[in-house]
Write a protein that binds this DNA or RNA. Structure first.
Length: 464
DNA sequence: GCCGACTTTTT
DNA sequence: AAAAGTCGG
């Protein structure tokens, strides 16, 4: 009798799961294991919204395994200790896991290899399943270990054929003698956003099918429309791996109208950021490119940061997006760009501050996508144009022309009709008194001057 | 080392 | 029209 352990990480699904399929094919018994990692719980990466979504995912994964005669084994603690103990208890020969890209995942893999080897067991690391094309699968012809610019990457990536998505195994036999453990209830998590989406592979597939039917074709035309909310909303499922990006690429390439190409391009952006992080794991905290910034600090910066977090900057479209984040644990992509630009360029606050706040709230909060997109906006990342600044008023007028999005999230401005809602400071004093809404905490020109001046001084210092 | 090209804009 | 440098072939 042979037994394998499958360690689930960011791949909480049964379909298109190479480690699970390999383990089922290799032996008589499989222990599907998820470890609630004590190190992650103690880190700044824990967040109630993701914890709640995760519990949905685990419950659904367990249900799917039970439909196949198996069950999920859940434990808490140090992931290496737990895997080692479970493997010993089940007398497993091998442990299967999908490769991860973050520094943490890479270190975890190294520790697992060592620990298991000491016991005479083997860790089988499968290609990353968090992306459609594995990090490192395509590299520039010059010999670098990763692409630093999106477009050449997209060209090479597009020529790759993502692996054919695997079917879910028909049956999974779990050995007796390994207790299942308890999947904690979602309802017990405190501080969860009211409008949080539900997790799990079933929920993900339902969302995918309805979106393919009614959203994908118009994606290219409407994905930037803030009130239209026409993005896929699949990001939390991609983060937790309840949907397979390889499957999504196959599906979108079957051409569901003009939106397919634009959507595939967005999927490539995920892969792009993951291959950058896999090669430069330190980019989760350090500037990918040093721009000699000296970000604002001290009490005045702290006050601005607080206003930004609460959605009280006085710039309606910024505040609306920040309130959406607090309310849903999610933010429209266009909103993410504009609030990030506002924090880093207009308020000239360190991108890490914003990235951390996003990680505390986003249900899809993902180290690769979040940190590297923040760096992109801040100008310290892979953008070769580090001075790009988004003007919140123009962004509001362009992507929320009638102010519908702003009024949806800012009840205090709900009575202010039309596009005037983007510039409440232009109202006459009498009218303005009717709205309990802050004056802008910074002038756009003032913010821009501060950013450019600081960058210039930093560059001169850097040349010395 | 040349040179074409570069998600997301602003004026 | 000018981004503002820098990547990648």
């Amino acid at each position: 009798m042979t037994v394998s352990v499958v360690l689930f990480t960011s791949d909480l699904r049964l379909r298109d799961h190479p480690p699970l399929s390999a383990a089922v094919a290799a032996g008589d018994y499989v222990v599907p294991l998820f470890v609630r990692d004590a190190a992650i719980a103690a880190s700044g990466f824990a967040a109630p919204n993701r914890e709640a979504f995760l519990r949905d995912c685990l419950a659904d994964l367990d249900a799917g395994l039970r439909e196949r005669g198996g069950r999920l084994v859940v434990r808490s603690g140090d992931v290496v200790d737990v895997v080692r103990g479970i493997a010993a208890r089940a007398r497993a020969e091998e442990v299967h896991v999908a490769a991860g890209v973050s520094g943490y995942a890479q270190a975890r893999e190294r520790r697992l290899v060592r620990a298991l080897e000491a016991d005479g067991r083997r860790l089988r690391v499968h290609d990353a399943v968090i992306t459609a094309v594995a990090p490192g699968a395509v590299t520039p012809s010059g010999g670098s270990d990763h692409f630093a610019v999106f477009t050449p990457y997209f060209t090479r990536w597009s020529a790759e054929r993502p692996r054919r998505p695997l079917r879910a195994p028909r049956a999974v036999r779990v050995p007796e003698g390994v207790p299942s453990g308890r999947i904690p209830r979602r309802e017990a998590v405190r501080g969860v956003a009211e409008g949080l989406a539900g997790g799990g592979e079933k929920a993900g597939r339902a969302l995918l099918l309805s979106w393919r039917r009614s959203g994908l074709a118009d994606y290219a035309a409407h994905h930037d429309d803030l009130p239209g909310d026409a993005t896929s909303r699949l990001s939390p499922h991609l983060h937790f791996g309840t949907l397979s990006p390889a499957e999504l690429v196959h599906l979108a390439r079957e051409k569901y109208g003009p939106g397919s190409d634009a959507f595939v391009r967005q999927l490539c952006w995920r892969d792009f950021h993951h291959q950058v992080l896999a090669a430069r794991p330190e980019a989760s905290a350090a500037d990918y490119r040093e721009r000699h910034d000296h970000w604002r600090e001290g009490t005045s910066a702290a006050r601005d940061i607080q206003a930004w977090k609460e959605g009280r900057t006085g710039y309606p479209v910024v505040d609306a997006a920040m309130r959406q984040l607090l309310h849903e644990g999610w933010m429209h992509n266009r909103g993410r760009l504009l609030v990030a630009s506002f924090l880093t360029k207009t308020l000239y606050v360190d991108w890490r501050v914003g990235a951390q706040h996003f990680l505390e709230h986003l249900v899809d909060g993902d180290i690769a996508n979040n940190q590297l997109n923040w760096q992109w906006v801040a100008g310290t990342g892979t953008d070769t144009r580090p001075n790009r600044v988004l003007n919140p008023v123009l962004q509001g007028r362009r992507y929320d022309p009638d102010g519908v999005y702003v009024r949806r999230w800012l009840p205090e401005l709900a009575g202010l009709a039309g596009r005037r809602v983007h510039e409440p400071w232009k109202l006459g004093a009498a009218e303005r008194a009717g709205y309990d809404y802050p004056e802008p905490i910074v002038g756009l020109g003032e913010g821009l001057a501060r950013f450019k001046g600081a960058r210039e001084r930093g560059r001169e210092r850097g040349r010395d």
